[in-house]
Design a protein around this nucleic acid. Sequence first.
DNA 1: CGAGCGATTGAAAAGACTCAACCACCGTGG
DNA 2: CCACGGTGGTTGAGTCTTTTCAATCGCTCG
Lengths: 231, 231
Amino acid sequence: MPEKSHKNITCEHCGVRKEGLFSNLTSGEVDDLNCHKVCNSYRKNQAIFLEGSFPRGVYCVNHGKVKVYTIGDEGKEQIIHVAKEGEVIGFRAMFSGDPYKVSATTLEDANICFIGKDDFLSMIDTNTHLRNMIMKELSKELGDRAQFITNLAQKSVRERLAFTLILLQKVYGEEPINLSREDLANFVGTATETLIRLLKEFKDEALIEVHTRKLTILNQDALIRIGGAVK
Amino acid sequence: MPEKSHKNITCEHCGVRKEGLFSNLTSGEVDDLNCHKVCNSYRKNQAIFLEGSFPRGVYCVNHGKVKVYTIGDEGKEQIIHVAKEGEVIGFRAMFSGDPYKVSATTLEDANICFIGKDDFLSMIDTNTHLRNMIMKELSKELGDRAQFITNLAQKSVRERLAFTLILLQKVYGEEPINLSREDLANFVGTATETLIRLLKEFKDEALIEVHTRKLTILNQDALIRIGGAVK
DNA sequence: CGAGCGATTGAAAAGACTCAACCACCGTGG
DNA sequence: CCACGGTGGTTGAGTCTTTTCAATCGCTCG
């Protein structure tokens, strides 16, 4: 269970709303959203929802990074996406009628607001703009995953690592990338040991800077040359 | 350019409509759809749309199988999905505002109806049921791709081939699976030679029957044990 | 009949994984 | 305060899967 936040955020003043699904709402719609949401704070490595369970609503990340992943047959995680501030997660399951096909867990301490399924769906029903944003987002993610699939099938681990670092840079922005080696390996789709060896290569080639968990990209162009551009 | 069909299909009598996106329409809605669609026939290996081009509408497969794929950096195809009769393809790009992120090409002679973008979008706007079907379908595909990603990252080629055969059996139904070795390899995500060797293994183990291009599954349970179930 | 494409086979090489050991750091409890 | 245990990170060696390259085969089509 998430613990109650001491400090509730109002959607109106939410600094990260302008980026995501809930941007461009009218002030009435923002009020509506605000009434229906509940703020919760999460500790690092706390589960938000789990594959196989039934969805009760959607989660809007106010602060902190979140990994979205599936568990393979051998119990190994495959990270599909790292969500940042402003992103709404778990809405796919609102429409499919199925239980979650993925799990979500915080990568650091986080503030995440919850909007119940009924409230969310009725907002969608009445708000054309929001609905279009959702469909656009579903479509965008579908395209992203097509590229992810192609990368996994056709690129070497070295290439995929370069690609993943470029992708993560977009998530972390100015801050250094901050993931455990295991999480990074589970995103790239490789063994932890292989990942560590390749990170060292990149460090030796002065493409990245490594401070324990914190990775900084030094030569973005070279990484793009290795891993290909994010489409 | 697709050639004109000699025999137009009417949506009302379309035998494959009941399965897909356009099932459960009122008869008025079916008439509406019928007025806006254009029937085309395609030859085997004919492109329907290409990655990078701008979408003009959606395609409803009336007869024939269609591969949906991306082209990797080295020019190699990665098949993402094989669409069968009744499926609507290319609708993702209706909402994203982007050009196609995937290409689609017929795997055999096919009849495919076209519905223009404006007509399609206005149907969505006015038809809640259709809209819900679309959102459900987008969501379902997103879940499928999450499993695809996990399989590629974590399973061996042998396991992926078994999984892919089970998947393709659902597409081909009673008929034998009928793909070139190269297409099958590009779906599994492996080299053609590796695929051929593994097919022989499966044949020697009496899991499948091979007649040149045509593959029949003899032992479904064993393949599921090897490759895991389709979620 | 010859060209050409798809399918097949063999051999060698490369890439990645596994396993095992070791290190470094951190927080805890004696 | 320090020993202890645990977790996450790192390294090395060996193995195995998979790819690559090259050659051959078989069939269809013009």
